[in-house]
């Protein structure tokens, strides 16, 4: 029963994506929507990304310095570990899990409300490919904006780590700088960005699927929003496992 339902859902998702990835009716309308979505999904998320990354960067630095570093370890370990955590996992995977909550629920509830108030039917009656018109700009916008969000997250995390040195004297800033630069592998930054592109696609497409296919009223819209976040998060974690294996082998 569960397997049949999952296969049906996956089939419906693929069929919807088939409708989404078509040539837009009017490129002018597409770019208008695309710009709007970049602002709504990307620019409006910068604040929360910076805030969370700053504090997590600071907390990682404190935790490692106080709980892991011992006199037997080199002093750069804290900076080095903070950098690796931010680059490899936090700024890509964990940040995308957070964005799945913020952006995913936003997309699912917006499309779900449009569905139950017949706005999507209105588009269909006019002869507009509603899936393409509504979903493609969201996917394109989030995939475009996510590398910037990841970069901002890395930067904010590192500033957070420095803040523990400047304001709380947890770590010597020179040691931190040395640790952050120690054995730096540029590929890890690209790993984070490549992973985030996949995660952005998952967040936008899965959330759109749950919102677009809502049937019923406000309760179903709420459920679709929850489903969007839960399923996006599960898929992000699952694909993180595969991508990490593939990219860091």
């Amino acid at each position: 029963m569960f397997i049949t339902k999952s296969i049906n859902t996956f089939g419906s998702y693929l069929m919807l994506m088939g409708k989404v990835f078509a040539r837009p009716e009017r490129m002018r309308s597409f770019f208008k929507q695309y710009t709007k979505e970049m602002s709504q999904l990307g620019v409006d998320s910068i604040g929360i990304v910076l805030l969370i990354s700053f504090f997590i960067g600071a907390v990682i630095c404190i935790q490692i310095k106080l709980n892991i570093q011992t006199p037997w370890m080199p002093r750069f370990v804290t900076g080095y570990t903070t950098r690796e955590i931010m680059l490899l996992e936090f700024s890509s995977s964990i940040m995308c899990l957070i964005l799945a909550g913020k952006v995913g629920s936003n997309i699912a509830s917006e499309l779900g409300t449009m569905r139950v108030t017949q706005q999507i039917d209105a588009l269909e009656i006019m002869g507009v490919n509603s899936a393409n018109f509504l979903i493609l700009p969201k996917i394109a916008a989030l995939v475009t904006m996510i590398p910037f969000l990841v970069t901002f997250s890395i930067a904010a995390g590192i500033i957070g780590a420095y803040a523990t040195g400047w304001f709380a004297n947890v770590i010597n800033p020179e040691d931190l700088t040395y640790g952050l630069q120690y054995s730096f592998t540029e590929w890890f930054v690209w790993c984070g960005i490549i992973k985030s592109l996949f995660f952005a696609f998952i967040i936008a497409s899965v959330s759109s699927f749950y919102g677009y296919t809502v049937e019923g009223g406000s309760i179903e819209v709420g459920k679709s929003s929850t489903n969007a976040v839960v399923h996006s998060s599960i898929l992000i974690l699952f694909s993180d496992l595969i991508l990490t294996q593939l990219l860091t082998e």
């Binding site: 309308s29 706005q119 209105a122 009656i125 006019m126 002869g127």
Partner: peptide
Amino acid sequence: RREMGMIFQSAALFDSMSVLENVMFPLDM
């Protein structure tokens, strides 16, 4: 479908657009 117009029970206006933009929408497309 472009020869059809429909008025829905709930009006189904696009919330993110002004009244003028709503009426312009089919013309834009």
